[in-house]
Amino acid sequence: MNNNRQAHIYEILETISDPEIPVLSILDLGIVRDVICSNHDAIEIIITPTYSGCPAMDAIAFDIKLKLLEAGYQHITITYTLSPAWSTDWMSEAGKQKLKAYGIAPPQTLSSRINKMLFETEENIECPRCHSTNTQLLSTFGSTACKSLYQCIDCKEPFDYFKCH
């Protein structure tokens, strides 16, 4: 019974998207840590932020509560946890494909291998439009905390890269 309830809740969570990147569900992004269904009708959803200052977290928590209330659930608790810290390694493969189709290059380096050498940039990031890897970093900081700005040298298109974290 609890397992059914949990599976149903996961189906609902799959329909909730990141407000800043609407093609990604919060499950694709890897920010839902756990769904705990007690024997009574209490539900606890545990989520973790991508970045410390991610302004989407409050909106996401609100959306979760709203969607679950609409589905008839009550006694919903949303708990934030910081540990273990989210990293881009947690993004699902399906999520990466959706990002690419949306025009954002998905993270392609393991979180532990972020470049720390000065003036070193992540290279061979694939342009989501023409698929060339002849691209260059324009700025490490982009339109949201999780993105860098790149440009394709071949097709000239500037594009967002979901940076490794």
Binding site: P49, S52, T81, L82, P84, A85, I114, N115, K116, T140
Partner: peptide, 16 residues
């Protein structure tokens, strides 16, 4: 936990 969450952000700030 807060430090672990923040450290990668700080590394980006430091590099920049």
């Amino acid at each position: 936990a807060i430090a672990t969450k923040s450290i990668k952000e700080i590394q980006y700030h430091l590099k920049w």
